[in-house]
Design a protein around this nucleic acid. Structure first.
Length: 996
RNA sequence: GCCCAGUUGGCGGAAUUGGUAGACGCGCUGGUCUCAAACACCAGUAGGAAACUGUGCCGGUUCGACUCCGGCACUGGGUACCA
């Protein structure tokens, strides 16, 4: 009763107190409304100012809403965008939604609700959450990939890809018409294109071909093409997936198993751009890890193809196995040749004796799922074909094997095996007892019985004309010889595969293709967008066709056959940066004026998980659109920053089971009992009891006895040794201490929980850093933070947590420091409730504090070290508070420099300083170095290994003073009693060391 | 296995060019205010009684190393038979 009353009094006092304090709720609401009303952040497409394009990777609007980790990158980009505006740039800072995707569709399958509805609801929630944080987005330029006005242009780009081929001579994509006229004039003999190997035909042949034949040939050249390819098929999702969407043999979304399957599919010929995607990386200001990941993904390797003649009586014609190797120097070490199980020659080279064994093996390899293959990489499997090939140099017979360690899709699908110098060949040879021949002598001791020597260093032996050469010289020589004798030729291979483009799903962009007599045609531009039709169910049809086959009243239904696949999730996101430049244009995907002005993204912020997916595709499309002359740039983003992930800190309580020795020990019994009286052991006691601490055990035991007594039992009591850790909602845990009553109310089953606590009655939870997720009860919502501390506080704190690029756990308790800082900042400008600003000139120390801060903040922002900025603001405000500084001369620039970080409070202060315009239109102040000069300082002197502060000098540092350093030397001599030092080391005008 | 990033107090982290390591914040301890508490404010806070020792470990370069070089260990991320 008394405490309740007192609480009321203190509550009232706090209310009055609050009135004098910064009222972030009101201020933030007002300024957010002001920005929206005045379109403060609207970017114009024409300006005398320099442009600056700051882009975030737009989110997929999921049903779970945002957690505190999501806005991290947006806050950073917003700070930079606001900073650039203050620096006088015309800033484009847009936001949108990547709104096609699987989760909405899965939800639709379960509930029957149209994915559009789900998506719109989620977008509305995202928008609400984003608005609360006070971002400076130009919402007039919002894009949604699922909006027909947007995907019209995604479809249009697909059509451009379909209507293009890659000319390797000009090294760019060209209109398919140029190829067409070349075929009509001369056939394809002189065409060098990115395509599958094709038969040579003349212009006469071309004219004679049927329409279908012509179409098939052209498909082989088009950048968007249909082909029978091995795809990653996910039966549970009922769709194919790109390599990038498969992680460790299961689907990235959902984690379902993935199989290999041969299917007719739309693909994009990204491999045509492999070389350019690789070489252009170097010039980009992206992080090394992303650049490296892309290089590895493209996987360029230069080597040689070599032909091995097959010795087989069965074959009428001469037949060769072509292998690809990066180590032609090891040719004399070849002891067998291995074919991929899917290799064309497998059937022909298999002898009658081996036929059944080979067929058995091929069936085995085919049915082995991707997952199994990855799981037992070390398991070696293979079979001998019975045939031999002729070694091109020694003329000896080498056996031909089949093994699934050779991939059909890479190189030629066949390898020459050199067991002594390749670890995979070594393992294979060891397993099947094939002999090895050492042909490179390493400089170090090497046990060839144990492992292969794969290094590209050493001298060649047993290698005929290569003997005595170093590896590098040998490679050069052998390539020359191979080419001279026509045994093969230098060849470059890429790991990168063409991107499979069709998805057997509903919620995506329809591929704008229809079929007439089995020939694919693209729609006319006027017919776009090809709208996503309504369907009764979002599942495949009974005959296994994609959901779009269910559409009843599609435009040309019955007239032509439509393509039923939709585009993959990455289609819309592969060009969205361009749409922001001219988001509402219905004549073109972007106008020439707009793209000429905005060019490309200056700063792109997003997660590193897109390294080999989105970030590769967006570069590909950009290059393609540039080739066709639609845009002036070849890269989408000049600078890329990857923000780290914010992890959750899960809290745990430890549950002990109680049972009664004299009762039935069946499991149900004590589970039942526990449900009535769960016992929780604190982290400390839990750990101690594990380590066999007797006193802790006794403590648990006596606590259990107490519980037991209260329950009305007389008999002995026991503690079940296996304790369970339970995730507990982090919102009822503060500084590791559990809110015990909240915990009891949290779940019905914990209603009667009994706690074994520390001496002071606190229950200390265990904690662990994990991914932030609902199921782990460690999600902290930004709404809650904004509600409790304000948007500015959240923004500052997210930056303060640590370096932007680093992953770090969220810890709400630290936010109070930032909250305190906000109050101190407010008080600088106020005395009680009233604004208290003086027009007196500032003192030198005050000016020094200000300009030091301007300098540091500028440097911090420029090098994206936002965490140190927040510290520097705190130092600045602490110093000014100490000075009791309320000078306009100081506080006005302070409001400006803090505005990118804490825009709401900055606007309010700016307004209270008497300005009518938004602080956004102010000018970022420039540091005046003269105020930074030290008036006095200590010389630290290291002498005989000890550092002493030499003497305090009262002087300012100017250029002349630096030259007058001799004076300091005099002082040094005096100090050292007339001895002359050998060396006096001066750094930043300070003597730091004296060498005698 | 390979590639990339990292390892600093009780915790998050700072040190920008090789120049007084631990800024700033959290937490903790003590004090002021209060009947009491919360809030707020003030002081202290790497370890050690001290000499000294301290940036994952071993060694090197340097007058001087968290920073540069060589080797190792561990943590996180990416990748996976790419010939």
């Amino acid at each position: 009763m008394l405490t309740a009353k007192l609480f009321q009094i203190s509550y009232l006092r706090n209310l009055i107190f609050d009135k004098m304090e910064y009222n972030f709720r009101e201020v933030e609401k007002n300024w957010q409304a002001y920005w929206a009303k005045h379109k403060t952040f609207k970017a114009e497409n024409t300006s005398a100012k320099h442009k600056y394009f700051v882009l975030d990777m737009f989110p997929y609007p999921s049903g779970a809403g945002l957690h505190v980790g999501h806005p991290l990158g947006y806050i950073a980009s917003d700070i930079f965008a606001r900073y650039k505006r203050l620096k006088g740039f015309n800033v484009l800072h847009p936001m949108g939604y990547d709104s096609f995707g699987l989760p909405a569709e899965q939800y639709a399958i379960q509930t029957g609700q149209h994915p559009r509805i789900t998506t719109e609801n989620n977008i509305a929630r995202y928008r609400e959450q984003l608005d609360k944080i006070g971002f400076s987005f130009d919402w007039d330029r919002e894009v949604r990939t699922s909006d027909p006005q947007y995907y019209k242009w995604t479809q249009w780009i697909f059509i451009q890809l379909f209507n293009s081929w890659y000319n390797k001579q000009s090294n760019k994509a060209e209109q398919i018409e140029t190829l067409f006229s070349e075929f009509e004039a001369r056939g394809n003999a002189s065409v060098i294109a990115a395509c599958e190997e094709t038969k040579i035909f003349t212009n006469a042949d071309w004219t004679a071909f049927s329409d279908k034949e012509k179409s098939d040939i052209l498909l082989n050249y088009r950048l968007a093409f249909l082909s029978d390819t091995m795809v990653n098929w996910c039966p549970q999702l009922g769709t194919v997936l790109a390599n990038e969407e498969v992680k460790e043999g299961v689907s990235e979304r959902g984690g379902y198993p993935v199989e290999r399957k041969l299917m007719k599919q739309w693909s994009l010929r990204i491999t045509a751009y492999a070389d350019r995607l690789l070489t252009d990386i170097d010039a980009l200001d992206w992080t090394d890890s992303i650049k490296e990941a892309q290089r590895n993904w493209i996987g360029k390797s230069e080597g040689t193809s070599i032909k091995f003649k097959v010795e087989s009586e069965k074959l009428e014609e001469e037949s060769f196995i072509e292998v690809f190797t990066t180590r032609p120097d090891t040719i004399f070490g070849v002891s067998f040749v291995t074919l991929a199980p899917e290799h064309d020659l497998v059937k022909q080279v298999t002898t009658a004796d081996q036929k059944s064994a080979v067929e058995e093996y091929i069936t085995f390899a085919k049915n082995r799922s991707e997952r199994e293959r990855m799981a037992d990489v070390k398991k070696i499997t293979g079979v001998f074909t019975g045939s031999y090939a002729t070694h091109p140099f020694t003329g000896k017979q080498v056996p031909i094997w089949i093994g699934d360690y050779v991939l059909a899709g890479y190189g030629t699908g066949a390898v020459m095996a050199v067991p002594a110098h390749d670890s995979r060949d070594f393992a294979f040879a060891n397993h099947f007892g094939i002999d090895k021949k050492v042909i490179i002598l390493p400089a170090v001791d090497w046990d060839f019985a144990d492992k292969s020597y794969d290094e590209k260093e050493g001298k060649l032996v047993n290698s005929d004309f290569l003997d005595g050469l170093e590896v590098k010289a040998a490679i050069k020589k052998i390539i020359a010889v191979i080419e001279e004798r026509g045994l093969g030729k230098g060849k470059t291979n890429f790991r990168l595969r063409d991107a499979i483009f069709g998805r057997q799903r509903y919620w995506g962009e329809p591929i704008p293709v229809y079929y007439k007599n089995d020939i694919p045609y693209v729609l006319n531009e006027q017919e776009l967008p090809l709208l996503l039709p309504e369907v009764d169910k979002y599942l495949p049809t009974e005959t296994g066709e994609p959901p779009l086959a269910r559409a009843k009243d599609w435009k040309y239904k019955g007239e032509f056959e439509y393509e039923y696949s939709t585009m993959p999730g990455w289609a819309g996101s592969s060009w969205y940066f361009l749409r922001y430049m001219d988001a509402n244009n219905d004549k073109a995907f972007v106008s020439k004026n707009a793209v000429d002005y905005w060019q490309n993204v200056d700063l792109y912020i997003g997660g590193s998980e897109h390294a080999t997916g989105h970030l590769l595709y967006i570069r590909f499309w950009t290059k393609f659109l540039n080739d066709l002359g639609f845009i002036p740039v070849t890269e989408p983003a000049k600078k890329l920053i990857n923000q780290g992930m914010i992890q959750g800190v899960s809290a745990f309580v430890y549950r002990a089971f109680v049972f009664f020795p004299d009762e039935d020990k069946e499991k149900e019994n004590y589970i039942d009992y526990y449900r009535k009286n769960p016992v929780f052991i604190s982290k400390k006691i839990f750990e101690l009891s594990i380590n066999g601490d007797e006193s802790a055990k006794n403590k648990i035991f006596s606590a259990l006895q107490k519980i037991h007594k209260e329950a009305g039992f007389d008999s002995g009591i026991g503690l079940f040794q296996e304790k369970t850790a339970i995730h507990v909602d982090v919102n009822i845990v503060k500084n590791d201490v559990l809110d015990q009553s909240a915990f009891k109310n949290w779940r019905e089953e914990y209603k009667d929980a009994v706690f074994i606590t520390e001496e002071n009655g606190d229950y200390i939870c265990g904690s662990e850093v994990e991914k932030m997720s609902k199921s782990k009860w460690n999600v902290v919502s930004p709404d809650l933070m904004v509600e409790q501390y304000g948007a500015d506080c959240l923004r500052l704190y997210e930056m303060f947590l640590g370096p932007l690029e680093q992953s770090k756990p969220w810890n709400t308790s630290g936010i109070s420091g930032v909250s305190n800082f906000m109050r101190k900042l407010w008080r600088l400008y106020h005395n009680g409730d009233a604004v208290n600003i003086s027009d007196e000139p500032a003192t030198r120390p005050e000016l020094k504090t200000l300009h030091k801060t301007i300098k540091k903040i500028t440097e911090d922002i420029e090098r994206f070290s936002f965490n140190t900025s927040v510290s520097n603001f705190m130092i600045c405000v602490n110093e000014l508070t100490e000075f009791k500084c309320n000078k306009r001369e100081i506080l006005e620039p302070l409001a400006i420099i803090i505005s990118p970080y804490a825009p709401h409070i900055a606007e309010e202060l700016w307004n209270r300083l008497g300005h009518n315009e938004s602080v956004t239109y102010a000018e970022f102040p420039i540091c005046k170095e003269e105020y930074l000069v030290e008036s006095s300082f200590n010389y630290p002197v290291s002498f005989n290994g000890k550092t002493r502060f030499f003497q305090e000098y009262d002087r300012s540092l100017s250029k002349e003073d630096v030259e007058k350093e001799v004076l300091t030397l005099d002082q040094t001599h005096k100090y050292l009693e007339g001895k002359t030092p050998k060396k006096v080391i001066v750094v930043h005008n300070k003597i730091v060391n004296i060498v005698m």
